[in-house]
Design a protein around this nucleic acid. Sequence first.
DNA 1: CCCCGCGTAGTACCCCGGTACCACCCGCCC
DNA 2: GGGCGGGTGGTACCGGGGTACTACGCGGGG
Lengths: 222, 222
Amino acid sequence: MTTVLIVDDQPLQRYAFRILLESVPETDVVGEAAHGAEAVRMTAELRPDVVLMDVRMPGMDGIEATRRIVAAGDRSRILVLTTFDLDEYVHAALRAGASGFLLKDARPEELLAGIRAVAAGDAVIAPALTRRILDEYARSRPATGRDPDDDPRLTGLTDREREILEAIGKGWTNGEIAAHFVLSESTVKTHVGRVLAKIGARDRIQAVIFAYDIGLARPNAG
Amino acid sequence: MTTVLIVDDQPLQRYAFRILLESVPETDVVGEAAHGAEAVRMTAELRPDVVLMDVRMPGMDGIEATRRIVAAGDRSRILVLTTFDLDEYVHAALRAGASGFLLKDARPEELLAGIRAVAAGDAVIAPALTRRILDEYARSRPATGRDPDDDPRLTGLTDREREILEAIGKGWTNGEIAAHFVLSESTVKTHVGRVLAKIGARDRIQAVIFAYDIGLARPNAG
DNA sequence: CCCCGCGTAGTACCCCGGTACCACCCGCCC
DNA sequence: GGGCGGGTGGTACCGGGGTACTACGCGGGG
């Protein structure tokens, strides 16, 4: 049974959510709040599994309420809902610690599925919003810079070993490397062992640092 | 009507997808490919609306195939499917330009909904994976100062844990960290465990990479 | 005053990583 | 033909890493 707190300034909207959630056996509405401050207080008190949080509300809005609930250490997962898919809302909500962001025009099943996912510790984003995030995600890439290819410390490595080193630099386990290159884990271990010996690293962690030092691996952000 | 190309090395798996997609009127399977190279060729030829792409395949895998299809300028949307929720797969697939990433254990309705969304230009990610994407997203978005001190991902760490994370970033073993801070190795393990949990790293290697990403650790040579 | 966050420390357990050693195949070159 | 390097694969072993759980002292805030 998933306990849910409904937060929305419009009584009719709360009513609609309540009707929907009570129509299925798996969710149980344990309370309703009409604004952010009330949401924070009731979350601390009722400890719902999921908080259905509207963004636009008079007084404290849903974003700030989300931030405070997360900061307070409450374990409740927060699913943010809005009528508008404004970028800033999404960014702010997710950075505030929300576990999900859906549009109010979602179909009932989608909403229920979202609550289920969030309650399970997963996260959900409305498909229409996911694209933007992925676009940014894909764009935040290359711009290589200087070339690690001719680094003298790499000349001793064979092509295969160099690939393996790159994989190590990405933080992959031996099993993942094996899967990616379609090899047995034994073979990967053999390669890894030779790489470590050649670059003078005592373990794969030193190899990761080595990869960053020579520019074979690069930070993703920050 | 949405045209779909099925890419998977296992005939039975392709069969299952075909049966599912042909059971609904809105999708039409226009072809099947057994490996990456074939997928690239058939996509250019058939111009399907959606490519259902398996990741693990002998020869060219789904990631590389996705990359080539996108690079070729084909308008087909690519929905990547895998049995394993390995981090790297998700990252690589999305960077390669995929419009979605689902797990094969998804329920049929989820899969169909995913295809619908992708065909409509939206994007989908399996709920179980969305959380990671959001973490990365929130991480890449802020674009604040270069100072790791106020990085939002560090705010949850205590001073001690931050010191430990720095030590991990230097590649130190638990024993070395214990010696440096004059602690027992048990205590170090406790701290390390908490750090990993808080930053969402599965092992210290991911923590090293994390430290480099946020600028807590920096490359030594060039 | 009592609780809680933090730092410290321990035990028990399991798995992955790393090493040592061996083996086979292939292409290349003497 | 024989040697050799690179790639692949295996077995066996062990130590460190990670997790789960427990515990205790301390200082600060309700």
